[in-house]
């Protein structure tokens, strides 16, 4: 079995190409989104609803009700990051995925067309940026 894990020359070449492309794109993406304060962007379908800074330790948590295709999704921002605490979808994958606060993390509730994307790293000075 372990012998089988080695793969052939073509397989190893394909793996090398795939890994190089993945690592390169990872670096490019991180360089783009890691700068600036840690923010949570909340989307519904094509619309960016709001961008909020993630609370630091000691700051109060923030709670939002976001209307989606199926109903209301509740988004909570606290020192642990952004998370969905309640969703009208049947699968509840979005609620179960927990809190996220690293640049590039996403929380998606596909049935309700809600997306939360995290970008940035350092402490924030904004209260909110709403569009």
């Amino acid at each position: 079995m372990l012998q089988l894990l080695k793969g052939g020359k073509t397989d190893r070449l394909l793996l090398l190409v795939a890994l190089s492309a993945i690592v390169f794109s990872w670096f490019v993406i991180q360089a783009q989104i890691s700068a600036g304060p840690a923010m949570a962007e909340i989307y519904h379908g094509q619309i960016l609803l709001a961008t909020y800074p993630l609370p630091q330790a000691g700051e109060p948590e923030q709670r939002f009700q976001v209307d989606g295709e199926l109903g209301e999704t509740v988004v909570v921002l606290d020192k642990q990051g952004a998370r969905i605490t309640s969703s009208p979808c049947s699968t509840q994958h979005c609620v179960l995925s927990g809190a996220h606060r690293h640049a590039g993390d996403i929380i998606a509730c596909v049935p309700n067309h809600i997306l939360i994307s995290i970008r940035g790293k350092s402490a924030s000075g904004y209260d909110a940026i709403v569009e």
Partner: peptide
């Protein structure tokens, strides 16, 4: 469903996991 390019920011780590699972599954299939 969610027409936002930022979705793709989450792809690289998941593709990395796909490489691992794809490789192991291929060995299992052999």
């Amino acid at each position: 469903f969610i027409q936002q390019g930022v979705l793709y920011y989450a792809l690289p780590p998941l593709l990395l996991l796909s490489c691992i699972s794809g490789w192991i599954n291929g060995a299992l299939a052999s």
